[in-house]
Amino acid sequence: MESLYNVFKRRGYTRRDFLKSALLIASTIGMGPSFLPQVVKALESKPKPQVLWLSFQSCLGCTQSILNSTSIVPADVLSEYISLEYHETLMFSHRSKEAMDLQKGRYVLVLEGSLPVDGGFYCTGGGRSAEEILKSLMDGAGLILALGSCASWGGIAHAEPNPTKAVAVDEILKHKRVVKLPGCPPVGDVIVSVIASFVVTGKPPEVDGEGRPRVFYGQTIHDRCYRRPFYDAGKFVGSFEGEDAQRGYCLYRMGCKGPITRNACATVRWNGGLSFPIQSGHPCFGCSEADFWDRGFIYRPLSVVEEGFSWKEALAGALIGTALGYGTAYINKKLGGG
């Protein structure tokens, strides 16, 4: 098996390009420049990872995302390096384990999409239910990645009314360590660097209580948002048009869910570090947090009552209170004799 450096060389890249990628990988997995020699050595010598990519109930946005990841490793190198031994979508879907020559304990199992637990009606392949396929592959995996919000939390398919009874993959893999990379889709560079870090270190990344890598999901969008100073200064965009929006004020009022969303968008950004939703003037809608779709109210501020609590409700409450108060006062007057 060839290493990453070999792929670089074969593709005609210089060693400088390779070192640049290695540095980026080292820094994104949180190892710092002093570990660079170790990272370089590992990428030079360790064989490329075997990746099994299973798609369940997904939209393929996550696949799209990794294929568009260009900032860490050039695309052509990446597609060759991450040897997709099996990809439901990119390859013929025969769903047979025999087609694969897998090294036990070494391969990376990437799971995209949520799992239906309806008893084998939805999302079947080769006569086997999604659950069976997953269960047959899970034991030998060195790293299980739940890719995207669907695999991590159930996502869109799990949202009301959830016709397929979709669940997150870790509901099935109860006793397995699943590394979750939520997001709709997750940032491609994050996927690459998590897989690369597995290659370098041989073990899954450090995760938080929910199974997300701390390096990428440790902070909220809000914490690292470049528009945070406007939030602190109390300057908000009131509508998508107009001067405030052009000035790039905070989008909290427009319904930005950045404060409760943990993702790397604000730091890694998209399309080779070009931009991310907030930078393009749209509020974050919190795609990497559980049940974001059910939360709804995308364009209303986070602090309001979701289903609405306007003066009408307040007045209704006050009127009921008034009636009760009047009744009580009336009874009291009768009883008190005053």
Binding site: F309, L315, G317, G325
Partner: peptide, 28 residues
């Protein structure tokens, strides 16, 4: 806490405050 509980709290608040205010006011 943000959605059902806050809503409940606001209902209780507006109802309760009006009740307490008018319970006293209507004593005459």
């Amino acid at each position: 806490v943000r959605e059902p509980f806050l809503k409940l709290a606001l209902w209780v608040f507006f109802l309760g405050i009006a009740y307490r205010f008018f319970r006293v006011l209507f004593l005459g």
